[in-house]
């Protein structure tokens, strides 16, 4: 029987991996595994996750497969214990959910199929996306790119891709 999903469990077992709802079942997975198994996000909508994955992958290729949206959704579930880099960048943990929802909603409503995600990101970098609402697009881009870097390269596997020895004193028991 899968254990029931609770915030206490998430905190007790660490926030780098966690319980994800996959096909109605609650499983203990890394975000990479969750992404691969099409998890059911708990905070963001599936569409919002898709939008963040698409944009994140355009910024840092490989971020979607590394579990970017599952990582964001899991950290948002952790509330004050969130490990998202946004905390360092002035996005208070209590405001993080609103921040990512707004970012995803902007992408969903403003990125149209006639332009590539790369071109859309280029317009975001200069705050040139017309109709963008909420925190400035360039800022959102910076934060999401930093999250995407975290999941793609901030792990022993990511270091290996870049040819850097990880040299852990205590290796994280889950990649991140």
């Amino acid at each position: 029987m899968p254990e029931p999903l609770s915030r206490r469990h998430l905190l007790a077992r660490g926030t780098a991996a966690g319980f994800f709802v996959v096909a109605g079942e609650c499983l203990w997975l890394t975000p990479q595994e969750a992404e691969a198994r099409v998890f059911e996000p708990q905070i963001l909508s599936p569409q919002q996750c898709k939008a963040l994955s698409m944009l994140g992958d355009a910024l840092v290729p490989g971020a979607a497969a590394a579990g970017l949206s599952a990582y964001i959704d899991l950290q948002l579930q952790a509330g004050d214990e969130s490990l998202l880099i946004g905390k360092y960048l002035g996005v208070d943990t209590s405001a993080q959910t609103g921040f990512y929802r707004a970012a995803a909603d902007n992408v969903m409503s403003l990125a149209d199929e006639s332009i590539s995600m790369h071109t859309f990101a280029t317009s975001m970098a200069t705050d040139a996306v017309s109709g963008w609402a909420g925190p400035p697009a360039s800022y959102v881009l910076f934060v999401l790119r930093a999250d995407a870097l975290d999941v793609t390269y901030g792990t022993p596997e990511g270091f290996e891709k870049l040819g850097i020895p990880y040299m852990a004193q205590i290796k994280p028991d889950k990649p991140w």
Binding site: A58, P61, F142, R145, L149, L162, I164
Partner: peptide, 21 residues
Amino acid sequence: KPHDLLGYGTNRPDIFGAELE
């Protein structure tokens, strides 16, 4: 390190997409 607040990847937001890796 490549990532995180002080990382070199984070400090070059102008580089993204296929150019990044």
